[in-house]
Structures are given as structure tokens and as C-alpha cells.
Design a protein around this nucleic acid. Structure first.
Lengths: 116, 116
DNA sequence: TCTTGACTTGGAGTCCACTCCAACAGTTAT
DNA sequence: ATAACTGTTGGAGTGGACTCCAAGTCAAGA
């Protein structure tokens, strides 16, 4: 599958896909006549990366996770540590979003009641 | 209350406080001998802005909300629209964070079971 | 054969939200 | 009164994550 098709299917720009490759988030991407031909494994990884990026996990953290992953079994403890860390960050973000959401909801309610 | 004290109390850098003022997020900040002397109203606003920024609401959106707020009652409908919009964005973010969180949790579980 | 269109690369540019800095001023402690 | 501290301004610099662009290659269709 070529870059343009993947971009369309996954919902990322072609540039972003190339950028992620440069940033070592996707491992080896095979070429046919110099043209990218993403494998199934590539696609799964892109999906995973996109999911993490959607949740605003940093490129840096994703790269580190993948670097470990590609080194095999003995990095599992390190990977676990990294995942837990990201989980904490996400939890924090969730809480902050929730808080702002609630404050906004509260403000809306005040408006609706004509209090404000 | 002076810039440094406010920074310490609220948990923002002094530069950030000045930056927010430049970006029109704080309205008038009174000066004594050219030195900022934040009022109670200023402080409440800073708190609110911080809460929104913690939830990653853009400076742009915050500025717009505040611009409306400072124009009084007749902007309430517009403000409501803006708040609803931000609420939607936050909801989206929450969902994405939740999704990534779940995927990561799932991956951790797989590791714990030694599957991966 | 010529054009169109999708692809390649390396590198520059953009946007956002800060963050740092130089140069200066006023207050406080010794 | 001199140093240390805390503040001021305008403007430049930073880091992250893209996004755009020029110049080129290659394959397929009119």
C-alpha cells in the first residue's frame, strides 16, 4: 500500500506519514522502485501511533516505546514502565479536561438560569 | 498582589502571566509605580484561564470568550455558543485520551500475562 | 511521445505557547 | 551608599509537531 492510500485510509497527511518515518516511529518501510509500500505490520503500527498521537502522547515517548519494542522480549520491563508513565500522564490530562468541562458546564448552567 | 507572588500562588511563571496579559486574557491589570498589582477580580480570572489552559483550551478561544464577557450581557448567547463548542472539543479529547488509555492498559495486561 | 499524476527527497517555513534576555528602575538590607 | 532583590519593557529565541515547497523520478493513458 502506497503513501497516499495509507494517508487516506488512516486519516493522516502524506507528509505526516513521512515525518513519522523520519522520526523513527514506523521501523522499516519497504520500497518498490523507491516508492513506499507499507506492509500489514506497518499499518498496524501506524494505527497504534495515530491512537497515541490522538491522545497527545509525545513523539518522543512513542519513539522510545517503539525503540524498546523493536529490541525484543528483554525490554518488556522497561516498556511496562513507559506505559505506566504515559497512563499517568493521560489520567492527569483526563482529570484536567474533566475539571474544565465541569467548570464550563457550571458556567453554562449559570447562564441558563440567567444568574450571570 | 505583585506578579511574582501571583505566579507563585497560582503556579504559573511570571513570564506566562505577562504573556497572558499581552494576549488580552486578563483585562486591565492595575499598576502601582508601573508595577502590577493584581486585583481580586484579576486573580479569579487568572484561575479560570489557568483551568482552561490546563485543559488545553487554546489562547485564541480563551481570548474570544473573555472579549465577549467584557462586553456584557448582550454577548451571553455568543458566549454560550463558544462554551458549548469548547465543551465538545474537550469531550472529544476525553474520548481520545480514554481510548489510548484503554489500549495501553490492554497492552500492559498482555505483558502481565506474558502474551506479548 | 508527451502530458498528467502520484510519488520521491532534503530542507525551509509555520504555528503555538511559552521562555529567555538585555537594559533599566525602584525598594530593602547591611 | 552600595549591593541584592524584584520588578518593568520590548523583542528575540525555543521546542514540538507538523506542513509546504522545489526539483526530480517513474508509470500509465491520449
Amino acid at each position: 500500500m502506497k503513501n497516499g492510500e495509507v494517508a487516506k485510509q488512516i486519516g493522516l497527511s502524506e507528509d505526516t506519514l513521512r515525518f513519522y518515518e523520519k522520526e523513527k516511529l514506523m521501523g522499516e518501510v519497504p520500497r518498490v522502485n523507491g516508492i513506499r509500500d507499507y506492509s500489514e505490520a506497518n499499518l498496524r503500527r501506524i494505527q497504534f501511533v495515530k491512537c497515541l498521537r490522538d491522545a497527545e502522547v509525545s513523539i518522543e515517548a512513542i519513539r522510545e516505546y517503539i525503540r524498546l519494542y523493536d529490541q525484543g522480549e528483554q525490554t518488556i520491563p522497561a516498556r511496562l514502565g513507559l506505559l505506566e508513565e504515559q497512563r499517568k500522564i493521560l489520567e492527569e490530562r483526563l482529570n484536567k479536561a474533566k475539571l474544565a468541562y465541569d467548570k464550563i458546564t457550571h458556567k453554562i448552567k449559570l447562564h441558563e438560569k440567567g444568574v450571570n
